[in-house]
Simulated scan of single mutants.
Amino acid sequence: MTAGRAGLGRRVACFRSIARPRMTQQRLADRAGVALGTIRKIERGERAASPRMLETLADALGVDVPRLLGDATATCAVRDALPAISDAIAVYDIPTDGPVRPLSRLAGDVQQCTAWRLAAQYKRVAHAAPDLVPELARALHQADEADIEQVAALLVSAYRSVDATAYKYGARDLSARLIELMRWAAARCSDPLVAATVAYVRTEIFFAARAHRAGLAALETAIDRAPAPTGPATAAARGALHMRAAVIAARAGDATAARVHLAEAERLTEHAPEGLYGGTAFGPDSVRVHRVAVAVSLGGDHVGEALAAAHAWKPPTDMPAERRSGFYIELARAQLWAGRPGYAFESLTAARRIAPLHTREHPWVRHDVATLRRLRRGAAPALTAFAEWCHAV
């Protein structure tokens, strides 16, 4: 038995043990389409795995091949795509020559990217962006006056999906550029709901810079400019801004402002049932998720409020995966602070199950998993495997 084979076998067994529902050796063999004896020999370190076998096992376990090999420095498909995305947005005002499909097809592709963003399928967004974004720029450059606003709104949505991908993977400068391009495109669209969306996303810049009070001021200005809540769409636009203002106020340590904005968001749910509005989830369940986020952001004595808000409640399965996983990441932090490490790990596992890419790249996850390992000396294989998966070791 070689050390390499032993390490691979140990990781296969660990990833199998933390799968939900729990995966037996037989189930792994069935999903991978190989003999049970093969799985047993690989886990015991008695058999090497060919490149094709590694890909098969990784797909069956729902992990990347580099993680299965224990390569913490392996390149990431999303990060590999970031230079191409940067090149694609550089020509926003002087688009390259090329075809432009009908608006209906462009709108379908933008809608698909939005769905991928909400489902935390960042690899798919990163793969599509280098072609889609320049084509939208060409469409805007060539558009008749009657179509300019529609194309501009599509470009804002596309930039938003790409920005979410860049932001989640730590490309803060690229994210800031994309947000400025959202603002540039939104200026060519008279729809105030588009402007509200841009203001909502722009808050990422303030979060990244820890300029929380400036971010709160920017959001409050956006709320003042947002259209009156005369229907579900306008109520949701204002409500989403209030939700985000509540979180950034909490990060600024302003509990009073956080509660005021959260209360306003909750009031607006009376006019906007849970759903997607302009690519943003809003409604009673989303406000409850943000109630947990606000309490965690305030920290200290407010941790109990997060646990109370999450008690005996789970985000509905039709809520976007990105937001549901975010809820469990926030809850895990509250549980860890409250001295409940076992529950915290369960919440992190739930977040991973819902949105693996979002969970793995979240800095809080890495920090909290590292803390769990320090608290639990002689950590269980499942926690060790999780730590390897999210680069916490």
Rank of each mutant, 00 (worst) to 15 (best):
G4V: 10
R5L: 08
R5M: 10
A6V: 11
L8T: 07
G9T: 06
A13L: 10
I18E: 09
I18Y: 06
I18R: 15
M23F: 11
M23C: 12
D30Y: 03
V34P: 02
A35G: 07
G37N: 07
I42R: 01
E43S: 00
E43W: 00
R44L: 10
G45I: 08
S50Q: 05
P51S: 04
R52F: 03
R52E: 13
M53H: 00
L54R: 04
L57E: 05
A60D: 01
G62D: 11
V63M: 05
V63F: 04
V63Q: 03
V63C: 07
D64Y: 03
R67C: 13
T73F: 15
T73M: 15
T75L: 12
S86H: 10
S86R: 14
P95I: 06
P99R: 08
L103N: 12
A107G: 06
A107W: 01
D109C: 08
Q112I: 00
R117E: 09
A120E: 11
K123L: 08
A126Q: 01
A126Y: 02
H127I: 03
P130Y: 04
P130G: 10
P134R: 04
L136P: 04
L136G: 06
A137P: 00
A137S: 05
A143M: 10
I148S: 08
Q150T: 06
D163M: 06
A164S: 12
K168F: 15
K168V: 13
K168A: 15
G170W: 15
M182R: 13
R183P: 03
A185K: 00
A187F: 10
C189R: 01
D191N: 13
P192C: 08
L193I: 11
V198D: 06
R202L: 12
I205K: 12
F207Y: 12
A211L: 07
H212D: 12
R213G: 04
L219E: 01
A222M: 12
D224S: 14
R225F: 09
P229I: 11
P232I: 07
P232G: 09
A233R: 15
A233Y: 15
A235S: 11
A236P: 02
A236M: 07
A237H: 06
A240M: 10
L241K: 07
I248T: 14
A249Q: 07
A250V: 05
R251G: 01
A252E: 07
G253T: 13
T256Y: 02
A257S: 13
H261P: 13
H271Y: 08
G275E: 12
G275V: 08
G278K: 00
A281N: 09
F282E: 02
S286P: 05
V287L: 06
R288T: 05
R288G: 04
R291L: 00
R291M: 00
G299W: 11
G304C: 06
L307Y: 09
A310G: 03
P320T: 04
A321N: 10
Q335L: 07
A338K: 02
G339F: 04
Y343L: 06
A350H: 14
R353L: 11
I354W: 04
I354S: 02
H362V: 05
P363F: 10
W364D: 08
R366W: 12
H367Q: 15
D368Y: 15
L372N: 02
R373H: 07
R376I: 03
G378D: 14
A379K: 11
P381A: 09
L383I: 12
E388A: 11
H391Y: 11
A392S: 14
